[in-house]
Amino acid sequence: MRLALSTPVVIQVPGTASAWEADAGIDDVARIGATADRLGFAYLTCSEHVAVPATAAEARGAVYWDPLATLAFLAARTSRIRLLTSVLVLGYHHPLEIAKRYGTLDRISGGRLILGVGVGSLREEFDLLGCAWDDRGARADDAMKALRASLSTTHPAYDGPYYRYDAMVVQPCALQPRVPIWVGGRTLRSLRRAVELGDGWTPFGLNIAEMAKMLGAVERPDDFAVALATPPLDPIGAAQQATDRIGRLKEAGATDVNCVIAAQSAEHYCDQLAALAELTDLSRTEQP
């Protein structure tokens, strides 16, 4: 099982984010990213929302840094840790747009991209961007197939119900021969989409029992990733609780644990990371 970070500051969800994050900046994010890299955490995350409706911000939060800019910056400040979009909304982009932008990120980072994608759940945001809502699931399936055919080649070609292209050049392309594609979501359909078209599942908004039930209903390949998130952990102040929470996710089927860390400052956050690495003997876990 791999331990990773739900990167603080770059997304601030009420009830999950710590108070210090509201006034934090890029230097804090860089420091935390470098610390996680040095300690051996598996990846950092960044989500995508262009604009959150004011009516939804109370529950979802309003702070969402752009994932491409953020992860590209972190790529330059780290050397080993992987970079996960968690998640990129497929309906907002043409597959070749994603292949070019995130293929470039994969190349400049030395092949460290994990492409997390999702169908999307904010109707107002779809309408704002002029994107199709009603058939977004079918479009997402087609986009994932197109991405698989296009991410790692400079001469992509694809012929599907929504996306068709040929005789195009996309250069640079991804460095990895097969960029891992993980699917976000909170339904059994999202898990099945991940198994059929992707390499992993990163659910949200589900409790452990719900996730375990879904995972038990679907046959998964041996190398399929299941990335489950913790509630806020306090490795210094509540060490046993932190390890118990991680253990319960492993029992539920996690191959990867996205750790949310409770902290009072960026410095305290880095201290918490060091404590968590020691608690879990991170140097002995299977990190990429």
Score class of each variant (00 low, 15 high):
residue 2 R to A: 15
residue 4 A to V: 08
residue 19 A to Y: 01
residue 21 E to S: 08
residue 25 G to I: 10
residue 27 D to N: 13
residue 27 D to A: 13
residue 27 D to F: 13
residue 28 D to F: 10
residue 34 A to I: 02
residue 36 A to T: 10
residue 37 D to M: 11
residue 39 L to P: 08
residue 40 G to K: 03
residue 42 A to K: 07
residue 43 Y to G: 05
residue 44 L to F: 01
residue 47 S to E: 06
residue 49 H to K: 00
residue 50 V to D: 09
residue 53 P to K: 08
residue 55 T to E: 13
residue 56 A to I: 03
residue 60 R to S: 02
residue 60 R to C: 03
residue 60 R to I: 10
residue 71 L to V: 12
residue 74 L to T: 07
residue 75 A to K: 11
residue 75 A to G: 13
residue 79 S to A: 14
residue 84 L to P: 02
residue 84 L to N: 09
residue 85 T to V: 06
residue 89 V to P: 10
residue 92 Y to H: 11
residue 96 L to N: 04
residue 102 Y to G: 10
residue 103 G to D: 14
residue 106 D to F: 15
residue 109 S to R: 14
residue 113 L to Y: 15
residue 115 L to M: 03
residue 117 V to W: 01
residue 130 G to W: 11
residue 131 C to R: 14
residue 132 A to R: 15
residue 133 W to F: 15
residue 139 R to P: 04
residue 143 A to I: 00
residue 144 M to P: 01
residue 146 A to S: 13
residue 148 R to D: 09
residue 150 S to K: 03
residue 151 L to I: 08
residue 162 Y to G: 10
residue 169 V to R: 15
residue 170 V to W: 02
residue 171 Q to K: 05
residue 180 P to A: 13
residue 181 I to F: 06
residue 183 V to N: 05
residue 183 V to A: 04
residue 183 V to W: 00
residue 185 G to R: 02
residue 186 R to M: 11
residue 186 R to W: 07
residue 192 R to N: 01
residue 193 R to T: 00
residue 194 A to G: 12
residue 200 G to C: 03
residue 206 L to P: 03
residue 212 A to E: 12
residue 212 A to F: 03
residue 215 L to P: 12
residue 216 G to E: 07
residue 220 R to G: 05
residue 221 P to H: 05
residue 225 A to Y: 00
residue 226 V to W: 00
residue 227 A to F: 00
residue 228 L to V: 03
residue 230 T to S: 04
residue 235 P to W: 11
residue 243 T to R: 12
residue 248 R to Q: 12
residue 250 K to T: 06
residue 253 G to Q: 07
residue 256 D to C: 12
residue 257 V to Q: 09
residue 257 V to A: 10
residue 259 C to Q: 06
residue 261 I to Y: 01
residue 261 I to L: 11
residue 261 I to A: 14
residue 263 A to I: 12
residue 264 Q to M: 02
residue 267 E to C: 07
residue 271 D to R: 09
residue 273 L to H: 01
residue 276 L to W: 07
residue 277 A to D: 07
residue 282 L to H: 06
residue 283 S to Q: 14
residue 283 S to N: 09
residue 283 S to R: 10
residue 286 E to P: 13
residue 288 P to F: 12
